[in-house]
């Protein structure tokens, strides 16, 4: 396995993932070979303390599963994931009992759909207070109210809002309620799973600025899962691209966008609809769809859709290699092609 060396800025590593795999067993016959769905397979990455880490890929690429595995909400079948925030040092796969409870306080999740993630029968105050009560983080009702008010104010919700029920709020306001609930236990690490995908663009910018503010002011590290590369480009410091459960590229945001080292990354970049009506050529389009993860193609899993694929790609799986500081990619021919140019040069 490739060692990812800590270079670049010397921030402390918060989460260190080595060869992580999440496999789900599929039902098979008695004598038939048991099949497994490899949702995440052999992922190695590091999330530095205080960064906004983006995780992108199409649906079915395993980005949500990886996010959940890091929260111990999906079973880890192989490899390790270590969480070290300076106070505690946990092996996420082995967490249980008291330690797991403590980890829940430190790592939280924001969901995609604020219409589905808030109980319609609870007031906003009760929704935000629930994590405190469940995790027994406060000793009195006054203290709970105090913490709820404090975080609500940071998410720009006023006292009047706290008395109401979720149905009275718009999408953007609801997402701010969901964010307040995730942050009320003062976590150091938050997984935001498509947290702005369901919002209008006018509101999306507002929620993104809010999250960015929490990173800046409270030093919270985010794992920002998204399929929208233009959003990721704006908000994330570091980006990892997944395809069929594997990490195909990871780099600081500006490097990934200016000089992608994997054809899948550049294909994703060129698929973003340009805001310029005179730029309708749109570069090279990716053919076909993501294959089923129950039966991934041999060799490089991307070869079935890759315009550059050769024989080697069909036979041998490329390993993640370092190109320059902190920029890793998994393509046999990364040096031979300038993917940016081949795809119409849309990237920044």
């Amino acid at each position: 396995m490739n060692e990812i060396v800590n270079n670049g800025d010397n921030k402390q590593t918060l989460i260190s993932v080595r060869d992580l795999a999440v496999h789900f067993p599929l039902r098979g016959g008695w004598f038939a070979e048991k099949h497994v769905l490899k949702a995440v397979d052999g992922v190695t990455l590091e999330i530095k303390l205080g960064t906004f880490f983006g995780l992108v890929g199409e649906s079915g690429s395993g980005k949500t599963t990886l996010g959940r595995a890091l929260l111990k909400a999906a079973p880890i079948s192989r490899g390790t994931a270590e969480f070290a925030d300076g106070e505690v040092d946990y092996n996420i796969a082995e967490l249980k009992g008291k330690e797991l409870q403590d980890y829940r306080k430190r790592a939280q999740l924001i969901f995609q759909d604020p219409y589905a993630s808030l109980s319609p029968r609870m007031t906003v105050r009760d929704i935000i207070a629930e994590p405190l009560e469940v995790m027994k983080l406060t000793s009195s009702r006054d203290e709970t109210n105090e913490r709820v008010r404090e975080i609500a104010a940071k998410c720009r919700l006023n006292l009047e809002h706290l008395r109401r029920f979720p149905h009275a709020f718009s999408g953007g306001q609801r997402q701010r309620i969901a964010i307040a609930r995730a942050l009320v236990s003062s976590p150091g690490f938050v997984v935001a799973d498509e947290a702005v995908a369901a919002l209008d663009v006018s509101i999306q910018a507002d929620v993104l600025n809010l999250l960015k503010g929490f990173q800046r002011d409270l030093g919270i590290s985010f794992l920002f899962i998204s399929h929208d590369l233009s959003v990721v480009a704006h908000i994330c410091d570091h980006v990892a691209v997944m395809y069929l459960g594997r990490l195909v590229e990871t780099a600081p945001t500006d490097k990934l966008f200016s000089h992608p080292r994997h054809p899948y990354t550049s294909a994703l970049l060129s698929a973003i609809p340009s805001l310029d009506p005179d730029d309708r050529a749109g570069g090279q389009k990716l053919e076909g769809e993501i294959p089923s993860p129950t039966n991934p193609p041999p060799g490089c899993t991307f070869h079935t859709r890759c315009p550059f694929a050769r024989d080697l790609c069909r036979q041998e799986e490329p390993q993640l290699r370092e190109f320059d500081d902190d920029h890793f990619g998994a393509c046999h021919f990364a040096e031979e092609f300038d993917f940016t140019r081949e795809h119409g040069g849309r990237a920044a």
Binding site: S170, A205, D206, S230, H234, F257, L275
Partner: peptide
């Protein structure tokens, strides 16, 4: 104008995103 300003633009990654203030 507000809608266009709220949109992330790929040719200028460091530009601030300006939301349309308030809710509909």
């Amino acid at each position: 104008k507000g809608l266009l300003n709220a949109l992330p633009k790929l040719d200028n990654l460091s530009a601030e995103l300006t939301p349309v203030p308030g809710d509909i």
